[in-house]
Design a protein around this nucleic acid. Sequence first.
DNA 1: ATTTAATATGCAATCGATTGTGTAAAGAAC
DNA 2: GTTCTTTACACAATCGATTGCATATTAAAT
Lengths: 343, 343
Amino acid sequence: MKRITIKDIAKTLGYSIGTVSKALADSHEISEVTKVEIQKFADENGYQYNQYAKLLRTGKTNIIGMIVPKIGNSFFSQILEGIEEKMSKTVYNLIIMQSYDDPVRELNLLETLFKKGADAIIIAPTGNCISLDYLRKLKKDGIPVVLIDRINYAISTHKIGIDNFRAVYQGISHLISMGCMDILFISSMAKGVVEERRRGYLQCLNDSGIQINYENLLSIDVEKNGENSREELIKYFAQRIQENILPDAIFTASDQLTYQVLEVLHALNIEVPKIIALLGFANFTFSNLFSPPLSCIVQPSKEMGSKAFALIEEILDKPDRQESSSFEDIKLPVKMEIRQSTN
Amino acid sequence: MKRITIKDIAKTLGYSIGTVSKALADSHEISEVTKVEIQKFADENGYQYNQYAKLLRTGKTNIIGMIVPKIGNSFFSQILEGIEEKMSKTVYNLIIMQSYDDPVRELNLLETLFKKGADAIIIAPTGNCISLDYLRKLKKDGIPVVLIDRINYAISTHKIGIDNFRAVYQGISHLISMGCMDILFISSMAKGVVEERRRGYLQCLNDSGIQINYENLLSIDVEKNGENSREELIKYFAQRIQENILPDAIFTASDQLTYQVLEVLHALNIEVPKIIALLGFANFTFSNLFSPPLSCIVQPSKEMGSKAFALIEEILDKPDRQESSSFEDIKLPVKMEIRQSTN
DNA sequence: ATTTAATATGCAATCGATTGTGTAAAGAAC
DNA sequence: GTTCTTTACACAATCGATTGCATATTAAAT
């Protein structure tokens, strides 16, 4: 019924608590005979050390905190999948939290994670992130911080993401190669990653000798339920239709936007790709089932997760750890899947 | 840098450790003046109690363990979303694990959760679940167990799901009302929920006076990466095409199957719904983007998550808790979204 | 003024481990 | 035979809290 402790073993076998502890740790201070006896007994009686008693001495909680905008978003749930896959075999525990892309909430969550004693933190920070100072403090306190997906270069810490500039550059290249000249770039308001993606767009147009039309940079405020952003998109395209100046292609800079834009185009009977070609980031496994089958840029989400955990594990398992001065900046390759929506 | 402890407060303010502890717990044993002094000091210096020291005394870990087949599956990540939303404001922590629908792995994970001292467990058990005995043991040990989605009536514990019989019954009714007579029912091998869904299918055919053809009950083994199941489906339909005996409708009894079947039908150029109508469980937000827009049965995933957590919170927060003899059996309503794929 | 009760605080055991120090007993060295 | 090591274990402090009991001080009751 109740779990057996080191004390129980000591009492039953007639050793001191310390001896049992050392025997189980396979210490050289204990004779082979005794070690075998104790270890065998522990095994047979299903002894499991109490990790909380242990951490009270050692100070390690083995908790890794993670903050993402929204778990239900398949991109982030795939990251999660990658983390869990590696982590379930280790002593570490993951605590997941959702920021809903709300900077204030994000800061609160970080404080909560600190209170809970997280040994390390993985975060996909919100765009206009006000938590940077707090993240720096955490780092100074010896808590490794890993940025994932939403890389922010204003803070020097570990980063795992993709080459956003290049990914978008390639995407736009593809659209251009398909004959598109008037490409609408839709992104969220957020800074950081979005900036990079926008640069990729601009640079590619430039390099291709296409005149840049700054009205083709559309920012949409994507929030929790997505109702407003849909309306915004509907209004935008309705007006464009009226003015009869639809672009010939759209690049969407995030998963949610990609789906939403496709939905809005359907709703307004704008044929894809006949009237407008569509390409964007999307991490849904069955993008080929869409109407039309969706061309998309797929991020190695699961790998990002497993890499993030591997990195943290490596850092935490180092014996004499101190605030490192060198930080990883991992950029994983994306995959561009070309289908009907850009044909 | 380091976190301040109760001991630091005691030393600085000249009280004993016990007094500080009681003051912070707002005990009546401590005078108002002292309490205010201590609490104020604690506040100003950012004191945070060490939950692990606390739990060592109290025995409560505040950890809730959760096992789902796969986090990346949008249905489960939505459940997760619902849980996190409620939980982030509480003292509880969630540990998530993936069983990949592997009964052996599931049992291991349960043991791990027990070792980690989970105070409660939420689980969507695998079909041919060998963990039932272990779950019963956990229950006896005073660890509340909540089954979610995959309800198994062989164990008496809390359950949160849908009325699978009715959901499928309605779905099949709809197919019949659209004129379908030869309906293929595709499910995984798993028992339990699948059984109920199958009963819904059979009963509905019966009630509609349609002759049951048991060859229309197809079981597919859906595993980790889904490669095999795709091949299996391809082979199945290829043969059916050859024999020229395609059904006029398909009902798929799980998210993954729904997407996969749709994909396979595309691959084999079987037009939906012209040749075969398709209806199934699916919890992807943008099912209307599919080709054709997918008719589906949507489960209240987020609500299932929040209900599960609410239930657990209620149980754990009860002061003098003992193994309850009455268990909740919550059935939430599903939503049937009718679109092109069954038209 | 003396006993009693209430109040406020200190003390110490406890949760389940880890780990440095202390100390018998046995064996080796001279 | 005395001294020095080595071996194998016990002892006790410690991590950061909680909590029942002891105790000192003050207030209330008689």
